[in-house]
Simulated assay, not measured.
Amino acid sequence: MNALAGVIFHFIGGFASGSFYVPYKKVKGWSWEAMWILGGLFSWIIVPPIAAWITIPNFGDIIRETGTSTVGYTYLFGLLWGIGGLTYGLGVRYLGVSLGSSVILGLSMVFGSLMPAIYYFFNQAPGKHGIDYFFTTNAGICVMIGLLVCILGIYLCGRAGMLKERSLSTLSAETKSDYNFGLGIVVAIVSGVLSACFNFGIEAGKPMADVANGLWKAANPNQGEFLYQNNVTYVVILWGGFTTNVVWCIYLLTKNKTFTDYGKVSAPLGKNLLLCALGGTTWYLQFFFYGMGESRLGNGASSWILHMAFIILISNAWGVILKEWKGVNRPTYRAIIGGIVIIILSICIVGFAKTLE
């Protein structure tokens, strides 16, 4: 039952992450940096402390009483992840929601799931799996098979993107928009590698989550693990993400002289603000529900793979719904649909792996 609940929570989180950029696409008359920083204020600064306060009223005391090194490393990984999150927005801009998310999150899935396992192989810790777990146990082998199947699905999505580029000459100017495969793929690779740092930040900040978990279990004996234990860790990780993004966006606003976007008569200020708030809040909800799923499955490779796979699945589904693939030929459309189906299969395999433990 815990495994099923964990998969459901990860699906909700993946749906939130795979959908967050949709409101941004409806913002009119603003530059990318103008909308990104406003949405980010909700993602990194406003919503996380509110969520932490609701679920862990003494979260501020936990952070203050945590060792400097723990808070520092958690913040550092958040800083690096912030670069990945920043370039994620650019990757989606140049590649589209479906292809951009597939490449970026696919790389993040691989690095985020395997690098901690390599670390714990050399630095053993209770409850943590080393890389040998994926080759010496039935559950671990099943997780690895699920990871490889998901990579195949990501490959098909990427192939669909390349086929789409070849057919751009037959597409409308609206469909072409900002699509730039060469620049987008470079940005996506950087984003994918650094985006995995969020999982490293969760690992680094685990002592804070353990305190929150211990306090809740003391007040609620024999009721399992605390669903919201990671909410305190997110606050620190997202400080790092905010630092990176606000510096870059202010630089762009100054360089491009786009501070004036907020005063444009032609831009619907109220509607744009609402869309940015919606996008930023939806973005944060991915981690809110990730923490709930992690409390049921554990913060191992399974949780990260499921989270990433669901995001990729939903992102590609939105790509189809938003008609990003409208006008492409049949082989291209079959490739993107095939990629989605295979990613769904990988989710089932990883979910099944938890029943083998």
Rank of each mutant, 00 (worst) to 15 (best):
I62T: 12
S113Q: 08
S108Y: 01
P48G: 12
S98N: 10
S69E: 09
T74I: 07
F77T: 01
G85W: 01
V92F: 00
L107M: 14
L76E: 09
T55K: 13
V92L: 10
G67C: 08
A51G: 09
F111G: 11
G106Y: 03
T87I: 06
G100T: 01
S101N: 11
I62F: 06
G106T: 11
Y73K: 07
W53E: 14
T55G: 13
S108A: 15
R64T: 15
P48I: 06
L80Y: 00
L79N: 04
G96V: 03
A117L: 06
T74F: 03
L86I: 04
V103C: 08
G72R: 05
G85F: 01
N58I: 08
G112H: 02
S108H: 05
L80M: 04
L107S: 11
I54P: 02
L86R: 02
L99A: 13
T68Q: 07
I54Q: 14
T70N: 13
I83A: 05
S113A: 15
G82F: 02
L114D: 05
P116Y: 01
I63F: 09
F111D: 13
I56P: 01
Y75R: 09
W53I: 13
F77H: 00
G85E: 09
F111M: 14
I54M: 15
S108K: 05
L99G: 09
I63R: 07
G67Y: 01
S108Q: 13
W53A: 15
G84A: 08
T68M: 12
S102A: 15
L86Q: 03
A51V: 15
G96Y: 02
L80V: 01
V103D: 08
L76P: 07
A51D: 11
L86F: 03
G96D: 05
Y88G: 11
A117K: 02
T74S: 12
I104G: 09
T70L: 09
L107R: 07
F111A: 15
I50D: 08
T74W: 00
G82L: 07
I56R: 02
G100S: 05
L86C: 07
D61K: 06
T70H: 06
F59W: 11
L79I: 06
F111H: 10
Y94N: 06
P49I: 02
P49A: 07
A52D: 13
V110S: 10
W81Q: 00
G112V: 06
I50K: 05
V97Q: 14
G85Y: 02
N58T: 14
G84T: 04
L95I: 08
V103A: 12
Y75L: 15
